[in-house]
Design a protein around this nucleic acid. Sequence first.
DNA 1: GACGGCATACCAACTGGTTGGTATGTCTGT
DNA 2: ACAGACATACCAACCAGTTGGTATGCCGTC
Lengths: 214, 214
Amino acid sequence: MVSHSIEPSSSGGARQRLLDAAVSVIRAKGYAATTVDELCADAGVTKGAFFHHFPTKDALAVAAAKHWSEITDAHFAAAPYGRLDDPLDRVLGYLDFRKALLRGAVAKFTCLVGTMVQEAYQTHPDIRSACDASISGHAARVESDIAEAMKRHRVRAAWTAESLALHMQAVLQGAFILAKAKGSAAAAEASIDHLRRYIELLFSRPRTKAKRKI
Amino acid sequence: MVSHSIEPSSSGGARQRLLDAAVSVIRAKGYAATTVDELCADAGVTKGAFFHHFPTKDALAVAAAKHWSEITDAHFAAAPYGRLDDPLDRVLGYLDFRKALLRGAVAKFTCLVGTMVQEAYQTHPDIRSACDASISGHAARVESDIAEAMKRHRVRAAWTAESLALHMQAVLQGAFILAKAKGSAAAAEASIDHLRRYIELLFSRPRTKAKRKI
DNA sequence: GACGGCATACCAACTGGTTGGTATGTCTGT
DNA sequence: ACAGACATACCAACCAGTTGGTATGCCGTC
């Protein structure tokens, strides 16, 4: 154990396990229905440990949103599409990557902050803004690729890179709702296909490589 | 009145007021965070009345989803775009109509079943399927217009009318999440604009009439 | 057309279990 | 010795659901 770890959470123990538990339990049951006791049980710690690290349940939610951002940022930063040359390929590759993630149980591929903000947007301002930061921050990474792609491919349009990046997040979040409602990822995949086709049309690129089986 | 009444709303009094209260309170606070007492207070009835009409809180949620379908079906059936001749105009008119609804408080224009299904999809199967029925039923109405438009405009495509109708709902649901996260409808409007543009591109129609101010 | 029988619609008070949070103690590394 | 990291025991508030009651309208019978 070295003096100071650069990690935001210096103790590898209870705090980290609680954050991981929050991510998995809240995605499955929602925020309000998730109890502190259940979080502790899932994390394998006691209630005393919980309130040692987080002053309130709401504070955990805010921390979990940041934790979620870190997890997802690392995940997408490590994905191979980021090394493609053409920024448009990176944008489309991002979508292919996201589509490929729709595997297994619904609770395992849906978005924590999208779930939380629906419950908390009006009653818990700090949770709302933490979720907003997570979504907007993620969108901003895609936005820069979009902006580059617009330059490279000389697209002059009435829409902005920012609005398209947010639209992409909207489609993904909506796709998760469809998956939750229908209990399967099929409709979500088809929705991502539509989004990909839209972007191809915007950039006047003939469709390639995507597997069409809507 | 006969012994068994399975009518959706047999009594005009407490039951109806409870359903209306459910629609407004759950949209603002989410399902789990909404208490029976609060519903009763909002509806101006007592707890006894609540459990007279609904065996459990979950049963109210299922009934509220159906109530929501009835409300929205009536609302969209009465909208003027439905009388347009060209089915493609009806599809685009539907989107314009939905965009125009994004006014006032976020809780007043978001979707009840989209909110509920996020919390209940895994823990309350009956609520999930009621929400699915509401979303899918609504999508089916748009789907028939899309199918007609594809015929009329001789669009032969890799995608189906069903998948596009569901995609439209995904965008709308995702737009609501953006609105909740950002506390304003601006991003949601821009997302609907993107969806409209996509459909115009699919049907090779030059953009007209839409106000572009993304 | 008065009456009893009965179902529906609602009300007010209560309950048992749950929940977020606290008070206080203990262990460990330095 | 001392501070941070946990554990144990506990509580007051809250919550879904229950209990037992009343008011009212309907329907067949005499």
